[in-house]
Design a protein around this nucleic acid. Structure first.
Lengths: 121, 121
DNA sequence: TCCGATAGTTCCGAAGTTCCGAACTATGGG
DNA sequence: CCCATAGTTCGGAACTTCGGAACTATCGGA
């Protein structure tokens, strides 16, 4: 299998990043990769929120994130490990990812607050 | 014609904003509305970059921006005036719009620099 | 070496979205 | 009342996304 394609940081385009993160599933996946010490196998993420994502869709989500320049994926034996390219992207587009991740967090917080603070999600 | 629909600021979802601004045309339109003292008629924007956008597409772009909560449009006689909802959105999702607009500006700057600094675009 | 299990990728059809020309609607002026 | 202007809606072609089934790569064990 050929090595997975990753754009150089100077070829990363804002519209690709916004498009990648405009999907809440992908945004959740990306947030998880970041939080999880920056390495995460694909299969560990097959449940996002309360929804099971089929393998083929997941694979595609990772491809979109990868080609947008947001993550770096490499094969380790039978599994693929994903690291976020946060610092690179932050260096090129300061404040972009922070703003996006915070926005999703704020929206999730607001949703939780209005449907009862005991919601375990 | 019924009044144009605008979401309340607390109903604005980050994915809608990202989706709206993931299109470089729409991002350019939004950036222009902001720079232009926050009011701009639709037709003033029929040329974005070096590309002429058909009326129907433009109308649709405005609708997407409006329903994402990014602009407020109101009829003034025969024309529609558009104001950016920057401060509202900034209050709800701090840093989001700034990060996005800066990212596009950075990308445009880089493109210009590499194809010759005399590029008038 | 061969086999089975595991982890992902590719393929492809159905469903959904976007684009844009043409027809339509609303408003103001003469 | 009619025309011009500014936008919206309609509809079909082109593109994108989703997800099941089939495929591929790698590891561990016999």
């Amino acid at each position: 299998m050929r090595p997975l394609f990753h754009p150089a940081i100077e070829d990363v385009r804002p519209e690709a990043i916004l498009h990648a993160l405009a999907d809440p599933h992908r945004a959740a996946i990306f947030a998880t990769i970041m939080r999880a010490g920056c390495v995460e196998a694909c299969s560990a993420l097959s449940v996002v929120g309360d929804r099971v994502i089929p393998k083929s869709s997941l694979s595609n989500h990772f491809k979109v994130l990868r080609e947008a320049g947001l993550i770096r994926s490499e094969r380790h034996g039978v599994e693929v490990r994903n690291a976020s390219r946060w610092t690179e992207v932050e260096g090129r587009f300061p404040g972009l990812l922070t703003g996006i991740i915070n926005a999703y967090a704020a929206a999730a917080g607001a949703r939780e607050r209005e449907r009862g603070p005991a919601d375990p999600r």
